[in-house]
Design a protein around this nucleic acid. Structure first.
Length: 426
DNA sequence: TCTGGGGTCCTAGGACCC
DNA sequence: TCTGGGGTCCTAGGACCC
């Protein structure tokens, strides 16, 4: 059996811990740049604020219901998530952290336990340790655990815990579940299935397997198997290293000049390089993109992108930045108001693997020497920033001029910044 | 005026190898 | 009119997830 533990309205719950006056009041958290709703309290859902809906279209509703509105505070949410996961890890040796607010627990060997009692104990403990409310779904496959979790959240009678174990229970649950709510069935597949009279999870489970394989491909076939109680998706106890790393942001006001855009790109590149070093990886490809608003009139729209091969894999911010500058210069066009830019690194090579020892064909500096000096500089940079705060030491071109995010409703970093705590006290 | 920021996997098709 | 059989690798695009 698998358990799926999911934090309720996670980002809103994080804000509420440090501001209990928000309890019972509708509250939302906005995406970066204060654009869309990405978390809503139950009260906010009830008044019709939609997931992913643009905030500016709901201004009247927000005022009328005195909704508490927050900019995303990922420093806070990331830290709270780590606390929740640490607590959950004490309840099973097998744990897969699936997202910032969700985790699978393997319950092999727990069959003799009173699973419901155990699940309720998990809920109580997480709440006592962190203040975060969680819901738990349990089932014989990950997909059924997901389905059970949805029931646990939607049905108040279950009070946050649902277990799908007997065939009759699974049958009833799937029959009551719309096919678009099945994990792995998105908009496109749902529309396709509804057109063919497949409306519930049970309908999907009962379709002929070859038909599902043909139309929903291998991923859909796995979903169907899992709905039928045959486990295809194992727990990933060790997180595989990332294949791509992306840092991108929308700008609060459009950026038109080359230098302004370059400053943003330099910042994103530094962040990518840092994430690479944290992963213990080096990248051999770097992509830069910049674009106008997709909602702008067609004539004012532009999407520029360029990928550069690095010759030899690197996680050195200075090396990556040189490539990023070349990439930006290739596609930059005057006369556009850029709303967003980003940097993606790929072609990963683990640090210390033979792959990175290959010499670039036209390299003049001996490789080991270059690598050693680059390694020392970046290590010093990371240590200084770890000790004195992110951004204390940075590349000269990584300056916050010319671009800014909108972030007008940001709460303090209660758990990760002494300065913010002192401000709260004052 | 204002619409996020990350990721993964799969498939088809093209280019190439012997 | 007729033109093999087996592969790999890469990329773009589409689907999905939070």
């Amino acid at each position: 059996m698998f358990a799926l533990v999911d934090c309720n309205n996670f980002y809103v719950s994080c804000e509420r811990i440090f501001n209990p006056a928000l309890c019972g009041r509708p509250a939302v958290v906005l995406s970066n740049n204060d654009g869309c709703f990405i978390a809503r309290s139950e009260e906010a859902k009830a008044i019709g604020l939609g997931m992913g809906a643009p905030a500016f279209k709901s201004q009247a509703l927000l005022r009328r219901h005195n909704v508490a509105v927050y900019s995303a505070n990922f420093a806070l949410y990331g830290d709270m998530s780590a606390r929740v996961m640490n607590t959950l890890a004490t309840f099973s040796p097998d744990i897969e952290i699936y997202s910032i607010d969700e985790c699978f627990l393997g319950l092999d060997g727990f069959g003799r336990f009173d699973l419901e009692g155990y699940a309720r104990e998990i809920c109580r403990t997480v709440h006592r340790h962190t203040g975060i409310p969680v819901s738990i779904g349990i089932g014989p496959t990950k997909t059924l655990a997901k389905a059970a979790n949805r029931m646990a959240k939607k049905n108040p009678v279950l009070a946050g815990v649902a277990i799908l174990r007997s065939e009759a229970d699974i049958h009833a649950a799937l029959g009551a579940m719309a096919v678009e709510h099945v994990w792995g069935i998105g908009n496109q597949y749902a529309a396709f299935l509804h057109e063919r009279g497949v409306h519930t999870a049970l309908d999907l489970a009962r379709l002929p397997a070859p038909w599902v394989r043909r139309h929903l491909h291998i991923t859909g076939a796995r979903v169907q198997e899992e709905l039928n109680g045959r486990s295809c998706l194992a727990l990933e106890l060790v997180r595989p290293s990332k294949q791509t790393i992306c840092t991108s942001r929308s700008f609060g006001t459009p950026v038109s000049d080359y230098d302004g855009l370059l400053h943003a790109v330099a910042h994103f590149t530094s962040k990518c390089a840092f994430k690479l070093r944290r992963e213990g990886s080096k990248a051999s490809l770097l992509t830069v993109f910049a674009c106008t608003s997709p909602f702008a009139p067609k004539k004012e729209r532009y999407w520029g992108t360029r990928t550069i091969g690095l010759g030899e894999a690197s996680s050195d911010a200075i090396v990556l930045l040189a490539a990023a500058e070349r990439a930006l210069a290739c596609f930059f066009r005057e006369g556009y108001g850029y709303r967003k830019a980003g940097v993606i690194v790929a072609g990963m090579v683990p640090c210390g693997s033979p792959g990175q020892m290959e010499l670039a064909l036209f390299d003049t500096v001996p490789l080991p020497e270059k690598q050693i000096s680059s390694g020392i500089v970046m290590e010093a940079l990371d240590r200084l920033n770890a000790r004195y705060g992110p951004g204390t030491v940075r590349l000269a071109s990584d300056v916050r001029t010319g671009w800014k995010q909108r972030q007008e409703l940001l709460s303090p970093q209660y758990t990760t910044s002494w300065n913010d705590i002192i401000e709260v006290k004052a």
